[in-house]
Design a protein around this nucleic acid. Structure first.
Lengths: 130, 130
DNA sequence: ATTGACTTTCCAGTAACTGGAAAGTTTAGT
DNA sequence: ACTAAACTTTCCAGTTACTGGAAAGTCAAT
């Protein structure tokens, strides 16, 4: 299977698949003509990475997870440790976004959104009442 | 006031202040020796940008907001439109992160995290039950 | 005069792709 | 057989918003 087909199967753009090979994440053997060849194993790996990326894991975390997946001497504790660390990051980001959201909603409600130049959003950004 | 003092006042790293000048966001006049000079006006602008960035506005959105702030012919509707668009993005991102979080928590709970190689996290990433 | 703390510019690197150019390959149609 | 479309290859550049570091100039104090 060539890269285009693999792209369809995995939902990843061909560009991204090539990129993953460039950085040594998922390697594919070549045909005689130089075209990359994707068999079941490579498709599995690409799917694995795609799912991990969808969960927000970084490419480097994906690399570690793929490594553990391939290792016979792994422990589920190692995998869980990676996940926990990532989950912490997600939680931090969530709190950050929630705080932003609250401020933004308040500003949105305070602003009339009319033709008048008077704007509490700009006022707040300019540091009023600070 | 030199850049170091301005950095302390605004909480922005000096590097970042120089960067903002590079991209034409907040310009500062120079002393005879070439050092940047920060007066009240520049400090206001930097503070404005810092607050907008903390609310998650992109640098380009900051540019637009600064422009509106400086304009006498603005309407609060224009400002609010930028905010709304940004808020939409924040909301999308929040939902995305919340979905990730839920999946991650489920996987965390399913994984024993012991010395055994058997791991439902890897199983799920590998596409089991799909 | 020399140290230390500033400051300047410029170049490179970060994360994870994405777009586009130029060139080679394969396939379908005539 | 010829050609045009559809793939594929590599390589280079651009994206976002900085951040780190090097080499060099400046300033204040000893």
């Amino acid at each position: 299977m060539n890269i285009g087909q693999a792209a369809k199967q995995t939902g990843l753009p061909a560009k991204t698949i090539r990129y993953y090979e460039d950085i040594g994440l998922v390697k594919a053997p070549r045909h005689d003509n130089g075209y990359r060849y994707y068999a079941e194993h490579q498709l599995q790996q690409l799917g694995f990475v795609a799912r991990a990326r969808n969960l927000g894991f970084s490419v480097d975390e994906c690399r570690s997870l793929l490594g553990l997946h391939a290792s016979t001497s792994r422990s589920s504790a190692e995998v869980k440790a990676i996940l926990k660390k990532h989950l912490d990051k997600v939680d931090r980001k969530l709190r950050e976004l929630q705080a932003m959201r609250e401020s933004l909603v308040k500003l949105e409600q305070a602003c009339p959104g009319d033709q008048d130049p008077d704007c509490p959003i700009l006022g707040s950004l300019a540091g009023s009442k600070e």
